[in-house]
């Protein structure tokens, strides 16, 4: 008799829990959605976060208020650790640093710890020299580096191991150059690099198109190669690495992810919101203004893409002589 009673209680509790969970799922999101920019205001992540905020608000699918919080520090790690302790109403911007940080022993976090929600945008990375440096194309540049890897100083930002840095390391490996011989100089931002390049402190830079486009259009710098698989519509004169015989395709992507253990409904809801968002005029305008390309993938595709990128970066790291 007593056992029956206990079973009855158990069942009623279970039913209660189930219905409660269902109720939450149906009304998700039911409070303000917060987008974490794991950087200080003004950077690429901050910009992406604020573009998303604008576009999501304009679209209105979410039906709740949307805010952006900045959690700068540790190459994204501070923001991501913060996300780790939140619920499905939180999401954070990410980039290849999420993967390389761990591969290069700079971070304990792995991409597998989070719930991928979407890929948002990408920008392509280019190699630029001062306009009067005298290199006709990337082949000439790589030939000289193969001859004497220390003859040129390469500026990268914001750190060694960043996309900018890795893109050039990959190009060097593909061109038969020992990347450990190369002279890299690290700057904290793209603006500093441009100053150093124009001031003659560095000979070339591997940087994003958004940082280079202004001086390129002003004719101050020459862009020798870009990591996109095909020439960009906006810069049809810039040749790709691939057409110059170097097998490099390197998107500098930005995506968005949620905390661990999100429910199916929450993921589906985010998929709805984000797929609607990338179709808005606000989003497209922001991409154009920042020299970014659309790179939307839904949550499922993002899971696969991140796996693929993980393998890709692992290869670069091992080929650069770390694990012979």
């Amino acid at each position: 008799m007593r056992r029956l009673f206990l079973i009855a209680i158990g069942i009623s509790l279970l039913v209660g829990c189930a219905s409660q969970k269902g109720a939450v799922g149906e009304t998700f999101p039911n409070k303000t959605i917060e987008i974490i920019a794991p950087a200080s205001p003004g950077g690429g992540w901050d910009m992406a976060a604020r573009s998303s905020q604008r576009a999501l608000k304009a679209d209105g699918t979410a039906g709740e208020d949307i805010t952006v919080i900045n959690k700068p520090g540790g190459g994204g790690e501070v923001g991501w650790q913060y996300l780790n302790q939140q619920d499905g109403h939180f999401a954070a911007l990410n980039s290849s640093l999420l993967i390389t940080g761990q591969l290069l022993g700079q971070s304990e976090l792995t991409y597998e710890q989070f719930t991928p929600l979407a890929m948002l945008s990408t920008e392509w990375l280019a190699v630029a020299t001062k306009a009067d440096a005298g290199f006709e194309n990337a082949t000439e540049l790589m030939d000289q580096l193969r001859e004497d890897p220390k003859s040129l100083t390469i500026g990268v930002s914001p750190s060694l191991g960043s996309g900018n840095h890795l893109a050039f390391v990959q190009a060097a490996i593909e061109s038969g150059i020992d990347p450990t011989e190369l002279q890299f100089l690290v700057y904290s931002s793209g603006g500093d690099i441009m100053n150093a390049l124009l001031g003659g402190h560095i000979d070339l830079t591997s940087n994003s198109m958004s940082d280079l486009s202004e001086q390129y259009e002003a004719g101050e710098v020459e862009i020798l190669a870009i990591t996109s698989p095909e020439r960009l519509d906006s810069f049809p004169d810039i040749p790709t690495w691939q057409e110059q015989g170097v097998s490099v395709e390197f998107p500098h992507w930005r995506g968005i992810m949620g905390p661990p253990d999100m429910s199916e409904t929450e993921i589906a809801q985010w998929d709805d919101m984000l797929s609607e968002m990338v179709e808005t005029e606000e989003w497209k305008t922001d991409l154009d203004n920042n020299d970014l390309d659309a790179f939307y993938m839904n949550s499922n595709e993002t899971v696969d893409f991140l796996k693929e990128q993980h393998e890709f970066f692992k290869d670069i790291v091992s080929e650069s002589g770390l694990a012979p």
Binding site: G105, L160, G161, T180, L322, P324
Partner: peptide, 17 residues
């Protein structure tokens, strides 16, 4: 032995192992 240091020299990594 280069590989000990490569990661730090090339990628600026701090590695404990």
């Amino acid at each position: 032995e280069k590989c000990h240091f490569t990661q730090s020299l090339l990628f600026g990594s701090y590695i404990t192992k």
